[in-house]
Design a protein around this nucleic acid. Structure first.
Length: 864
RNA sequence: GCCGGGAUGGCGAAAUUGGCAGACGCAGCGGACUUAAAAUCCGCAGGGGCCAAAAGCCCUGUGGGGGUUCGAUUCCCCCUCCCGGCACCA
């Protein structure tokens, strides 16, 4: 890898470098570069074991996009994962902790245009740089399993999967809309469309929608399972599960067919397709339907407007409005309006003729693109009906415990579900729930509809009219039509030296030697698909590849994957809560159905860390509040940057970066180092007291604090992951040691205890500050590998306090504190409490009504 | 609008979720060391009041208002604001 020398960041404070090992000042750069060099010589240091008898643990951080340099969000993400990996190693597990690069994508093409660097070169250069940064930060990755998604040995398997999907009918082609900039003459990704709906390069040119043939994956075959299995993901944040549920957007309802009918204008029955199917979640309100509303893009609209140019142009306006609004992201804000078609439809429940309108608030891509409008029981329908004076007919009354209230008219629109039907023929008097059931059954019996479920989740469109992605392995033959590339011909290599411009469609279509091939079926001329795959495909299965990263006969070996999967702990930003995490769940289910793996879900436990912000805002170049990891490492060292990113806030919350905060951490590390320089050698001197069981109270206090600290840090790793409090606990331990320095120097602390304290302090620091921990470990004369040294165990007896302070409250207010032996019983504590002068004063002249004693916690005396 | 998550000193936060509010760190103040500074070490520190000052004592305080309780940052009800997701979803 080029640019490797970057990992040795130069020391910025040469005045402080020193060769004197006994210098009390911690020379961060000297120590960190020493260990960094040693670790890099030992390539297998962090390798997962094969055929291990140990329990496996797969800890994974989301792989980065190689944008050029790590940012603090990465540092935070990887510091969490690395601490966990190291802790898990120390607990004797066989740990898989890999890293890779999500390296296809648009920025590489932009760089190619603006910096005239080929995407591959740009990307690989960035990877080298970021890898060096990661190494300098001391992250313990098994680089022998590195996955780089833009290289053929990875993306060939994307193509292989695509063929499998195609074979099973899960990949298909259909016309679909894309964003099109008329000035660039090209397709834009969604993120290239500005919030105002204009092109990012032509800020006053509105983006248009064009229809193109595109490839889709049938993720909707798995909708129900994706939804249902969310209930099994107990190790996931509730927030993420909720977001996925909303994204899938399951909605139960009823389809009802309305036949087109004669209207007063005697136009006769409508054209081909003489029924309009509406989707409603409230079929119980159907007797209150007073119009049908169609989406402007509903297929029937074309026929309805065929003989009416005036109407057609109005519909054109509605469509334009809707698009504009949806591109601007404020559909929902636009004012509702519509046009009557002059046609009528027949309500199959009461044979009533109701007018058909076309309205801008109906979306073609949800439900059937047609609704029955019930103004009395729907907010939007109500607003629309008010505007156009459509009839508002009440058919549901609220149910109340007070029988008289039931008869009063509710304010319209009345949208609640807990009601009773009126004016609804045979259904009058039923509850809404009962009516929905009965009416759906009736519709099905009569063949005019049925109960159904619709989803917000749509099939996954994966075609991108871009260069820097996986070529879709498909051919178009004049004679045989769509022909998949035979498996033996994979990979379809992405050609290099392709001219990249942002104009004129897919860059690959301008490479004749790529496009023109002969058909594998008939040998005749054929054209290659020139679109590439969505990069979310790359990240949908990359974590399986880590388990068997060099397999050249399959994406990975199923048995090996079954050993490692599911991932025990996955850590990343919440911004991937929906797309990446749904796609990869889908991919896992598909691979299971192919028989490749046994697990239904890829990730057992998920952790989403908060953002790193500064001055209350997300770090961004435009705000000028970006903190560079390189600079932090150069100034304070990798340990400090890592420790601070864990200390400043609990990991699931946003972290407000403060430069002065990392200085404090830097001081702390120096403080620890100094203590060891002063006292590490003391273990050799012969102590005048070596019996640990006969400790002075001061020595006993140190011992107690040590065991309390081990408990606190261990508990947090097992439980809630509040590393900020773990680190506080370690700081407290260090403070305790400094406070006891005099008695330590007086040799009042037995050497074995001193050694125990120092060894364990190093072990506790090891997951968070590996550089310092290794240096101190060596300073203690230890030669075992710190990474595999067993995590310390605490002794509950030794952690126990012998004396405790009990607060004494009088009527809930703190009046005094008494110190009692930890073993004191209620009677003893109460006696002591009542004998206390301050307590006596507080209760003087009053009568004690109640004495409350919470064992070991507090006393409250209630007086009158 | 719906669904999540928040709101605690000057700042980042803690209180392992009914039991001493503010651990730990930053910034601040005071002291020691130093010719001096840096570095380091020790101490003080929510706000207000009594007091010349200190010790000490008192009141008050976890976004706002109610409630439950001997006791509420924590539980219940109502409200405000901030962050995130979804959204004319029928």
């Amino acid at each position: 890898m080029p640019k490797e020398e970057k990992s040795e960041l130069t020391v910025t404070r040469p005045d402080r470098t020193s060769d004197r090992p006994n210098d009390e000042r911690y020379d961060v750069q000297r120590v960190e570069s020493k260990w960094s060099a040693r670790w890099q010589q030992d390539a297998s240091r962090y390798a997962a074991e094969r055929d291990s008898a140990k329990k496996k643990y797969y800890v994974l951080e989301m792989l980065p996009y190689p944008s050029g340099a790590l940012h603090m969000g990465h540092v935070r993400n990887y510091s969490i994962g690395d601490a966990l990996a190291r802790y898990t190693w120390m607990n004797g597990y066989n740990v898989l902790h890999p890293m890779g690069w999500d390296s296809f994508g648009l920025p590489a093409e932009n760089a190619a245009i603006s910096a005239n660097t080929p995407p591959r070169e740009w990307t690989l250069g960035n990877i080298a740089n970021m890898k060096a940064q990661m190494k300098r930060l001391g992250f313990a990755y098994d680089w022998s399993r590195e996955v780089t998604t833009c290289l053929p040995d990875y993306y060939r398997w994307n193509q292989w999967f695509f063929l499998k999907l195609y074979e099973r009918g899960l990949a298909y082609r259909k016309k679909s809309k894309v964003n099109w900039c008329p000035k660039c003459c090209t397709v834009l990704a969604n993120e290239q469309v500005l919030p105002n709906g204009c092109c990012w390069r032509h800020e006053d040119t509105p983006v248009e929608q064009r229809e193109l043939e595109q490839w889709f994956l049938r993720i909707t075959n798995y909708t129900e399972e994706l939804l249902r299995d969310l209930d099994k993901l107990n190790g996931w944040p509730e927030k993420v599960r909720t977001m996925q549920r909303n994204w899938i957007g399951r909605s139960e309802g009823t389809l009802v067919d309305f036949k087109l009918g004669y209207g007063p204008d005697h136009h006769g029955f409508g054209p081909a397709g003489s029924t309009i199917t509406v989707f409603t979640t409230r079929v119980d309100t159907i007797f209150g339907a007073t119009s049908i509303q169609l989406a402007p893009e509903h297929p029937m609209v074309k026929d309805l407007t065929a003989s009416n140019p005036d109407l057609r142009s109005k519909v054109g306006q509605l469509i334009a409005e809707q698009r504009k609004a949806s591109e601007a992201g404020d559909i929902g804000e636009i004012e509702k309006h519509g046009v009557p078609t002059g046609r009528f439809a027949i309500n199959p429940f009461n044979n009533e003729k109701i007018p058909i309108w076309i309205a801008n608030y109906i979306l073609m891509d949800y439900g059937t693109g047609a609704i029955m409008s019930v103004p009395a029981h729907d907010e939007r329908d109500y607003e629309f009906a008010k505007k156009y004076n459509l009839e508002i007919r009440l058919v549901i009354l609220p149910i109340s415990n007070d029988p008289e209230e039931t008869m009063t008219e509710p304010p319209v629109p009345f949208t609640a579900h807990d009601g009773m039907l009126i004016n609804s023929g045979p259904y009058s008097g039923m509850s809404c729930a009962a009516a929905i059931k009965k009416m759906s059954e009736y519709a099905e019996q009569k063949g005019i509809g049925k109960a159904t479920v619709t989803y917000r989740l749509k099939d996954w469109g994966i075609s991108r009219q871009r260069y820097w992605g996986t070529p879709i392995p498909m051919l178009y033959c004049e004679k045989d039509g769509i022909v998949p590339v035979p498996e033996k011909d994979l990979p379809v290599i992405l050609p290099e030296n392709v001219e990249i411009t942002l104009t004129g469609g897919s860059p690959l279509s301008r490479v004749p030697e790529f496009v023109n091939v002969s058909c594998p079926k008939c040998g005749g001329p054929a054209r290659r698909e020139t679109d590439t795959m969505d990069t979310f495909i790359d990240s949908s299965w990359y974590f399986y590849r880590y388990t068997d990263a060099h397999n050249d006969r399959a994406p990975f070996d199923g048995e090996i994957a079954n050993y490692w999967f599911p991932i025990d702990q996955y850590i990343g930003g919440v911004e991937h809560a929906i797309l990446h995490l749904i796609y990869s769940r889908f991919w896992t289910k598909f691979m299971r159905d192919l028989g490749m793996i046994a697990n239904d879900e890829p990730v057992e436990r998920l952790f989403t860390q908060g953002m790193v912000i500064k001055d209350g805002a997300k770090m961004s170049k435009s705000l000028g509040n970006v903190v560079s990891p390189d600079e932090m490492v150069a100034r304070y060292g990798a340990d400090a940057a890592r420790l601070y990113s864990l200390f400043a806030a609990p990991p699931d919350r946003d972290l407000d970066w403060q430069d002065s905060g990392i200085e404090g951490i830097h001081r702390f590390l120096g403080r620890v180092y100094r203590f060891f320089v002063r006292h590490a050698m003391r273990r050799g001197s012969s102590p005048h007291k070596s019996d640990v069981t006969q400790l002075s109270p001061e020595a006993r206090a140190i011992q107690r604090k040590l065991h309390q600290t081990i408990k606190r840090v261990s508990d947090d790793f097992q439980g809630r992951w509040h590393f900020n409090t773990c680190i506080s606990a370690i700081m407290e331990l260090v403070n305790t040691l400094y406070a006891a320095e005099e008695i330590i120097e007086a040799n009042d602390v037995p050497a074995p205890l001193m050694l125990e304290v120092q060894r364990n302090l190093v072990l506790l620091l090891a997951p968070f500050a590996p550089y310092l921990a290794h240096e101190l470990w060596e300073m203690l004369g230890e030669n075992s590998d710190l990474l595999r040294t067993p995590w310390p165990k605490y002794d509950a007896e030794l952690a126990k306090e012998e004396e405790i302070e009990i607060p004494i409250q009088v009527n809930g207010k703190l009046r005094s504190l008494i110190v009692v032996p930890a073993s004191a019983d209620e009677q003893f504590v109460l006696e002591r409490a009542l004998a206390d002068e301050k307590v006596k004063a507080a209760i003087a002249g009053k009568q004690i009504v109640k004495k409350i004693y919470v064992p070991g916690k507090m006393v409250n005396l209630v007086v009158k």
